[in-house]
Design a protein around this nucleic acid. Structure first.
Lengths: 211, 211, 211, 211
DNA sequence: CATGAATGAGTATTCATTCAT
DNA sequence: CATGAATGAATACTCATTCAT
């Protein structure tokens, strides 16, 4: 099975490796300088390769930023879904624990490298109409995922039966975005956790007093 | 009364008028084409003026986008504060009504011209490091404002005494952002209202079932 | 006689006055900033007039610089000729005294306002092919004048009969130029006089020892 | 020996070659059109290269003119010093012969390519304050060199002991400048030689009659 | 396959000049 | 007649992309 992909070994592996390194270098450059200010030569220089080489791995500047964003989106979507399928829980407490795990997971990503939210939420949309659409689409996808969690909860009865699933999901995602943006100024894991907790309190207890 | 400001009349008034028109045209261009894709000539062409004229009113391309953003920020901050001072209410119901008014106000702005949230939330941050900072700063200011509302509520006892005011404010603003972004895809006033309602339900009732 | 030029009086006099002031202001600007760096608005601003007014007095930027240079050339040619006609002297001593007077006269001009030699010798030729020609023409005129002095001396026998009048005149003018340029670095009247003296010693005694 | 500098060979040599050609083309353009009238595209067009290529070799327009002037200055200073060290002679006759050689050398440069003195003496100073300073500095350097020759002569006793070395050197250089400028109108080698001779007669015999 | 020299499309900006007020 | 708002020609410079070596 895997044997027929082996012949590419030596060379092909090197190639894939460099390709990955270019994506990482591009990520660094775009995050540090901004997409428009970063040049192909900056990316190449960071790797010590000729900038002509870049074009052996990617069509053009616009091409690579797509791959960079792909990377980020994948990283985040993985955190959101990994071992936390929407239908994995069946009680409110379990759900709350699940959301906490997801929150922590995201917090770790954002705190680990604030350039991730910076690129995704600040830089990306300014690149292009197309990229702005991609960002919105990503948010919609994330919303759909959140909505799936909520739907499951409504179906199983541990969430309000009259919950406006779609809009609530959107609102929850907005809070996550706010957390991500907050991590740009104060990327403390602690601060992240507190924000996460505040969101959960909001979701489960509301803001009103006695009730 | 107004007579002493009249001397500037004729010419000066025309000048201010054109200045405003340039800001509007620039807003249109940046929203339609994106900051980087929009040229000074696009702005000038839209007004039927020579592009040299532009430079009589603004230092350079970077200069005007600041004014455009100023406009948007002012428009939004006005909506957030006008006749809705943080200390204007003293009961939960009144507060809820107040948040509803504010939400409607924002919804109107976003629905009226979806280019406002598009430029502010998608385009602006990608222009520049400096502009990205301005956007974050704007969000922080908005958060501080929301926090003031919440603080007032905690002090008067109609909001949870253990409310994490700062982070909750941030979370609420995140939801507003999500609403603004949603208005890009579906700028229906109706949809806005529903989202707004979902947020309020979330804030006051939480998402859990029985409770 | 003069009565028929009077009607223009009031207005016309004012006009000529302003015209002169514009020339002076232009001289200042061109000397301070250089012809290319100086703008019409700089000239107008220096006089506190609108820059549109400039065009009521001069065709264009190129036009006025001609007038400015005219001024300088006239000032210098006047010094070179005033009460010092080529045929005014008839002995070597008298000639030497004459050259000394002329030298002093020039030294005074250059020391008074180093911007005169700067504009004429450094700035002017770089403006234009046409202006470069004018500068060369001016030098040629000055050379012709000097040659006239020398011719007179040869004819009257107090200068070498085999003097290469033309080339010697050119050489002498070169020394004057050198003096003018030197005045840019050290515009001391004293230094000017010493240079002047060195030139005269060279002209009359040569540089060799015994002789 | 030269083998270890060879590695740069192929490509590097081509590069240096093109660099030199650009300098020459720039020299042509600046001399023909004047610095301000000449565009980068003129330089590139003259070589049949893309104007972007220019910027691979020089920072900007101002950068290259410095190199062009460097070239000229070097060419002239070389002629002034090559095999003609100030202390190479010890008698008046030998000195006179030396000055003749130097004069011839310069005459050849100026007659060969009148664009050299044109650019250096007419065009350059009008470019910039900085370039005007460079020109003056160049003249000062040349003066210092001439002064060294004269000092040597005074010390060895074949030049007047009371010679004002500094100012005489300046005066002599002024005559050279005049010769250079004269070559613009009549770049005949013959005319140059005559001028040169007139200067030497002036320096050694003065202008006065019998004496 | 890596390289980097060559390229030129694209654009912000300046400033002399005009002309309506 | 003075003014300065409007104008647009003119140009230096950048950088993504190509392709010969």
């Amino acid at each position: 099975m895997t044997s027929d992909s082996r012949p590419l070994s030596r060379a092909e592996r090197k190639k894939q490796e460099l390709r990955g390194e270019i994506i990482n270098a591009a990520f660094d450059c775009f995050a540090d300088l901004g997409y428009h200010a970063a040049g192909i030569s900056d990316i190449a220089a960071r790797l010590g390769i000729g900038h002509g080489t870049f074009y052996r791995y990617f069509q053009n500047k616009r091409d690579i930023v797509d791959h960079v964003i792909d990377d980020l989106v994948t990283r985040i979507m993985t955190a959101l879904t990994a071992e936390n399928a929407p239908d994995a829980v069946s009680t409110l407490d379990a759900y709350r624990a699940q959301t906490e795990r997801i929150g922590d997971s995201l917090a770790r990503i954002f705190a680990d490298d604030p350039r991730v939210p910076r690129l995704l939420l600040l830089e990306a949309a300014g690149i292009d109409k197309a990229m702005a659409d991609r960002v919105l689409e990503f948010l919609n996808t994330a919303t759909a995922l959140t909505a799936a969690y909520l739907s499951h909860g409504v179906e199983l009865g541990y969430l309000r039966p009259d919950l406006d699933v779609e809009n609530t999901a959107r609102a929850i995602n907005g809070m996550i975005m706010a957390g991500a943006l907050a991590s740009l100024d104060a990327p403390t894991a602690d601060q992240q956790r507190q924000f996460s907790e505040a969101v959960r309190r909001l979701m489960y207890d509301g803001i009103a007093a006695h009730l």
